[in-house]
Design a protein around this nucleic acid. Structure first.
Lengths: 357, 357
DNA sequence: TTGTAAGCGTTATCAA
DNA sequence: TTGATAACGCTTACAA
């Protein structure tokens, strides 16, 4: 495998000249340039990125640390990161499924020297210390952090506002007894969505009531199991805000088997707008989460800072989470063409998205 | 940011000793070991991976080159790669959305020195030359290549066998006029699936008939549009094999709006087993594609070769693509519990998979 | 057991 | 405009 020395020897110049030609330096004679490019292509020379970034102290690689890769949420985040990075000619060093602080830290440690910046999701408050340690080593952009998480660049989803808007939508349809199926306790998204639900109720002069807050853990099964408690609650709820679509899916399925009609007997709203949501029966009203945008914005934020010479103040971006009205809440669907036409034009498929395999 | 020199200075030993301690070399005194570890943790020293791999000529990083990141297929492939890599303490350097040979090559070039091996998908036959060039630089495992693609390690999906089995399933149900909706011409998966369809027909003594082969491009819309031609074909088909689930989805939706009942008036089988498939109405009979396993096996293949000192012969692995019988083909569903129970136990969710966010 | 010094493949700094 | 040569941060002979 040829190195810069081989090219220099073949071109009969010094390695310094080769380097200058390859990096497009101006102070090179036409003659040298010609000889070097010829030699390089004759040998099919590929510069060693590792050696290069050792001296330049820059890698053109962005690190990504995620707690898990499961589900379409993380896939979309990665897709957004990759796409945005590619546009700027960056590559992505990925490491996921990091449960505890210790593994997060060791993954970050092993990226030392290989990346120009790190985009990470801090699973819990315990990892705040880890973030502090990591930030001493390279620039960090946090994904979806807890609100008051230090003075670090961050981009997140408007969980609170989205949940509030979803609940307000149900209120606007006349519902007064609105239940919720919570996500796992301690989870950032889950907590924020519950807060939004509470806020909307209070805004309508309604007091949050514990019996109307059903336990869940974001799984389909927990949504399914919540159906019994839901129907047993008094006053009998006429609507539910499920903290994510998976639980909404489980719930709808349970209600169907219990002959409770959605939306007639029970209005249901979810959160996430997963792919299945629009194909459910009835199509699920939900809150759109732009996971792709989350990744995309994180990259842009990172590279903006990297490229700006003067110090950039800490920035915190919040992506909107709009309510997508379909049929499961009983309102007239605003965005869904009759089934036949939908196959032709689907406004929800992110631009550029294409089918697999 | 502290380097090995800082640690050496603080511990009052040479950098060689620091290196030995940090790499767990045996020939170090207890005294030195103690001093070094103390100094390292006091400074919170993180070794520079770039410098390290420059000397060791190994990075513990696997490169991944994909034509596109769109859709759950690629997400799953990446998830499989990441998971398998993590188990072996490897990280993943990702670069996707490479349309033409030139960008593939330049992405690979920029990975020179940063990776120990490359897992790539060669979009078309044109990229065969690129693969040859790349293989001179590092070990390569190909994903889903065209059958006779050089002497390179590869892992792929049994497109041919899966399509044949799907078609045979329809034949077994008594259908004789079986149409297909093709994928885009020139696409590997598409071509193989068509071959499988043909093979099954011939095996049943039926000649493939062009009017029964409807154009499609793997998009939902193309499946939708194929409905008209399907119903116009003579002899009127009683069953369709769609080359992927997206097209099957579009088709089913079109048939519903035309009051053609599935499976009574038209049996439909898809390919891929995308997440939506089991939630369709009726649930779609399809062929399972193990994208996660594809990535996982590629990593294992790569690392097996990397770790085996003696030369390893070229290996080619083909992952099975079993038919998943649901309702859209008219047979009794073998694997689907009544709707109510499904929320509890879903045999298709890959082990360890969890909901998002 | 330890330290010195020679790489690893580049880029960057000087003189020339 | 060029070429020695010194970094870059680490590992590893080789000597001590």
């Amino acid at each position: 495998v040829p190195t810069i020395h081989d090219v220099a020897q073949l071109a009969d110049v010094s390695i310094a000249t080769v380097s200058r030609v390859l990096n497009g330096s101006l102070r090179v004679s036409e003659e040298s340039r010609r000889k070097v490019t010829a030699a390089a292509s004759q040998l099919d020379y590929w510069p060693n990125g590792t050696a290069r970034s050792l001296t330049t102290r820059s890698t053109h690689v962005l690190g990504v640390l995620l707690p898990d890769l499961y589900g379409e949420f993380f896939s979309e985040v990665i897709r957004g990161i990759d796409q945005a990075a590619r546009v700027q000619m960056y590559q992505v060093l990925l490491s996921s499924s990091h449960a505890d602080t210790e593994t997060v830290l060791s993954a970050a440690r092993s990226m030392r020297g290989r990346i120009d910046g790190l985009i990470m999701m801090a699973p819990d408050e315990a990892s705040a210390e880890a973030v502090e340690l990591i930030r001493r080593r390279f620039p960090v952009v946090l994904l979806n952090p807890r609100s008051p998480s230090g003075d670090c660049d961050a981009v997140s989803i408007a969980n609170f506002e989205g949940a509030r808007a979803a609940t307000q939508h149900l209120l606007g349809l006349g519902h007064r007894a609105i239940a919720t199926i919570r996500g796992p306790l301690g989870n950032v998204d889950s907590d924020e969505r519950l807060r939004g639900y509470h806020d909307a109720l209070r805004g309508a002069g309604l007091a949050p009531s514990p019996p109307l807050e059903l336990a869940g853990d974001f799984t389909e099964g927990s949504g399914y199991r919540a159906a019994a408690d839901l129907l047993a609650a008094r006053p009998r709820p006429t609507a539910v805000f499920a903290a994510n679509d998976s639980m909404a899916l489980g719930l709808v399925s349970a209600l169907a088997s219990l002959d409770v009609s959605v939306p007639k007997d029970m209005a249901v709203v979810g959160f996430d707008d997963i792919a299945i949501a629009r194909y459910m029966n009835p199509p699920l009203t939900t809150v759109r989460v732009d996971a792709f945008g989350l990744g995309q914005h994180a990259v842009r934020m990172m590279l903006y800072r990297a490229r700006t010479p003067e110090p950039v103040p800490v920035r915190r971006e919040v992506l909107p989470a709009p309510v997508v009205v379909r049929c499961s809440c009983g309102a007239a669907p605003a965005d869904r063409a009759p089934r036949g036409r939908e196959a032709e034009i689907d406004p929800f498929i992110p631009s550029g998205r294409r089918p697999s395999p």
